[in-house]
Structures are given as structure tokens and as C-alpha cells.
Design a binder for these strands. Sequence first.
DNA 1: GTCTATAAGCAGATAGAC
DNA 2: GTCTATCTGCTTATAGAC
Lengths: 192, 192
Amino acid sequence: MPAPLIPKEEVLERLTAAFRAHGYEGASLARLSEATGLGRASLYHYFPGGKRDMAAAVLEFVGAHFERLVLAPLGEDGPIGPRLNRMILGLDEFYMRGEAACVWDLFGIGRAGEAFRDELRQSVDHVCAALAEALGRAGVPTAIAKARAEDTVVAFQGALVVARARGDRSVFERVLAELPGRLLADMPPAGG
Amino acid sequence: MPAPLIPKEEVLERLTAAFRAHGYEGASLARLSEATGLGRASLYHYFPGGKRDMAAAVLEFVGAHFERLVLAPLGEDGPIGPRLNRMILGLDEFYMRGEAACVWDLFGIGRAGEAFRDELRQSVDHVCAALAEALGRAGVPTAIAKARAEDTVVAFQGALVVARARGDRSVFERVLAELPGRLLADMPPAGG
DNA sequence: GTCTATAAGCAGATAGAC
DNA sequence: GTCTATCTGCTTATAGAC
């Protein structure tokens, strides 16, 4: 019973990269096989449901990754300013400085969009809620916090699309840099 | 020599709808054929280069459509406020109140992203420049106008992604409604 | 857990009749 | 300008040996 050639976490990392590069429809089993170094049959051993299974696993994987890199720093103790800065560093790393597409975007298109409708909605809502909660704790009124949380997600998603269409990541970095000012507008500098 | 069953403009409209619904990879010839009501061979008669040709035509078609609905009202004479409002009405119509995906997003992914790299970059740059020019004419300093123009595109692109992932267009409408305030921040109400 | 082989179907694209 | 028929290659998925 030979051990796996690479740990399952690395398989998921490589599947994620392949889906991000080609989209759901464009990520053929041939490409997924090449990206992971596993034969088709091995992929079906890990993911009996085939490509759909792989995409679902990727969705869960990037969700956990996002939680660790972006939401966890935001939820720690201490003043809101440094926590936002750590969140932004996390976003920058998660999206590879603007080069990586977001699976919310990729998996929202076509066949995948129907298959993962519920997962996508829950995921976006969860992130918006976590952001709004952090802003609320920092003293931003609830309704405003909710809108600003949503605006934050809108901003980095839009920046990713524009960066990709332009072939220039600079807009992503600029949008991230301007997030704290927008999120904490009209707040005292030490607020939270 | 029988006349075409439907005018070419309608063919392009239906192709656009199909690409928007399924993405580039997901829009198979079978689907494009079904969407237009034309057989495969007829599609190849209109677009000898096949699917790539159809996508290029769609890109040009939506570009002209965007020009007419969004940029033209912005470039008219008169105060900036009403012109921005007409632009927003145009955006709302162009993106079907937030339901339609943007081809900048769809065609930026995978194989299409490589094929249409230059067209996408030019298209985004053109729209950003037109927006920046309008803001500049209204008295917004050039550097700020450029950033705000880019932010506008980022905002509605991000709103489209979030709206689709959430299955709820309301964020798109909210983002559009807030555009004038963001674009004309720190400007006298009659500016322009 | 990986491999080779293969099935069954769909992809994009073309030929030639009408 | 549309049609039917067809081609080649790639798609997802499975079977069974090791």
C-alpha cells in the first residue's frame, strides 16, 4: 500500500491553482492531472465525484485559507488599525498580490454557478458578517458597518477583475492600501 | 439566396447572452447554435474563425453598446450631476440591473484571457480615460480624477461579482446609487 | 494508491449538397 | 445562407491489473 506521492493538502493547493488559472470549465481533467502530477484514476480515488468533487474541495480549502489569513487577524484583540493592516496583508497574500482570481468569481459562472450557488452565497455572507462585526466592535454604527463590509468585498473583487483585464496588478495594491481610510472614515484615530 | 432568418445584430445579442450565461469555455457551439437558432454551419458562415471569432465580435458589440449607453451620456454638455445620473442609468441597463456578467470578467479567464489580452486592456483603459476626462472637466484634479475613474470601474465590476455570488442584485443597485457622491466628493454641488 | 486501457460522448471545425 | 453528415481530438468517467 504505497504512500501518496504528495500530501492531500498539496493536491488541493495545486488543484486550486489550476482552477484559478483556467476557470471551472477550462480546468479539464487533463490539466488537473498535470497540475497535481496524479493520474486520472488517482484523482478519482481522492475525489470519487470527479471534477465537481474537486471543485467543492477547493472551495472548502480556500475558505479555510481565507479564514486563517484574513479573518483570523481581524478577529484578534487590540486596536482596529493594526488588525485591519494585518487583514490587508492577508488579502494581499491570499490573492497573490492581485494575480490570483477569486473562486467566488470563477465558480459563479455557468454550470459551476448553479452547482455551488448555496456555498457561494454562504461564503460571501460569512465574510461580510465577519467584517461588519469587526467594524461594529470598533464603534462603527451597525448599518454603516454592514455597508462598508460589503463595499470592502466589492472593492477587492472588482480590483481583481480590473487587474486581470488590464494585466496590471497595481490597482489591486492601491485598493487594498485605501481600505483602512474608507472603513474607518469619520472615526477617531484610536477608535476601537 | 435566402435572407438571413434574423439580422446580424440580433445574432450578436443572442451570442452575447450565451457567453454571459456560460462564460467563454462553457459556451459550446451547441449552446451558441441553440441560442441563435442557427446551425453550426451557419455560425461558421457568419464567423469563419469559429468560436474565437464570435467572442471577438461580441467584445466589439458590447463595446459599442457600452459607448452608447454609458459613455455618450457622460460626454454630453451640461452640469456633471445629471450626466453622472444618466451614466448610472446606462450602467444599470447595460448590466441588466446587475444580472448580466461583464465580458471583461468572463473573457479574462483562461484561454480567452490569453486570446483577448490586448482588447481587454484597451477596453478598460478607454473607459477609465473617458471617466477621468469627464471628472477632470468637472474640476476634479487630474490625479484624483484618474483614481476615482478606476475606482468606479472597480466598484461596478466588484458589485457584479458579489451580486452573482450572492444571487442578490441589491448590492449592484446600492453601489451605483453611491457613485455620484464618491466621484464628486469635496466638490461644490454645482461644480461642472 | 497508482497504473494502463478504454468506453461513450461532446468539443470545435469542415465538406459539399441544396 | 442553411442543411446533413462527418472528422479528429479531447472530454469525463470507469474497469481492472499491480
